[in-house]
Amino acid sequence: MSSRPPLSRRRALRILAAGVSIPLGVLALRRVRGQPQPVQWHGEALGAVAHMTLWHPDPGVAKRAMLRMQAEIARLEAVFSLHRPESELSRLNRDGRIGTPSRDLFDVFDQSRRIAEASGGAFDPTIQPLWRLYAETARSGAAPDPARLAAALRAVDHTRVSASRRAIRFDRPGMSASLNGIAQGYVTDRITDLLGNEGFENAVIELGETRALGHAPDGTAFTIGLVDPLQPHRTSRSVALADASLSVSGGYGLRFGDASRHHIFDPKTGISANRLAQVAVIAPRATLADGLSTAIYVAGESAAPALLAGHASTRAILTRADGTVLQL
């Protein structure tokens, strides 16, 4: 090897200049690119209004990612949609059994089983027969007939679902699963994870449930408005969300006939739960947040601390029927 010339002054200066020019070049490049830009998408996922907002310095990248996420949402719809007669879930509900379920379906059944057990059945993925009964009778505006209600209740029992990777099966006739919004949580989580995987660092994903990926681009948390349960066209408060999900349960959404009959049923009585006006749960993942908020809404205030304690980094905001608020 040829002998190295000594480190002369000129040489040292050159090295220094080169060392400085790269950071300077990087700074200049950042200038040219500017700040992350938001790109939005509005659409529908599993029958609910859906939004996604992605921030990225190159809007083209965000748009392409959005398209890919739509492809993924479409695929998940084919698994979970109750509106599609050919979805996996619809086929399971129709036949009472499905062989080699997709990993997605199995995962959701598995997670709902866990939350159902933890909540002593306050959250129950097999609530669909009740839902159907109420939807049918809602036309007349009356409460469902007690005999039919009892019959529907017999078909609601999360312990009668056997789910394995081989097959998912209902052990009683007439059972069917709605997955109770937890599927929305799953889709939300799935898309958020994919986006994180693609290198996105700031995003708000609302696919039935809300999840924030990272912070807002300015470094603060995202602010999400909570609907006022007593005046559902207004927001009562806002929640700061960063790298976390929010799920809100309240009976003011879909109603059957009169205001006390809504879509969140107590699986034990078959009657819409009305202990609390609203439950908002903040948890790391949307699937969990959804399961917990439904469970607390049904089981009531007293069950909340124990349910939350079972999971790290979860908190809840409960609104009682009289409008008073309890933060846990």
Binding site: R30, V32, R33, P57, D58
Partner: peptide
């Protein structure tokens, strides 16, 4: 992809 518009630790690492 981000043209150096990212958190400082990442930028320092790349530089």
């Amino acid at each position: 992809t981000a043209k150096f518009v990212r958190g400082l630790p990442y930028v320092i690492y790349a530089v």
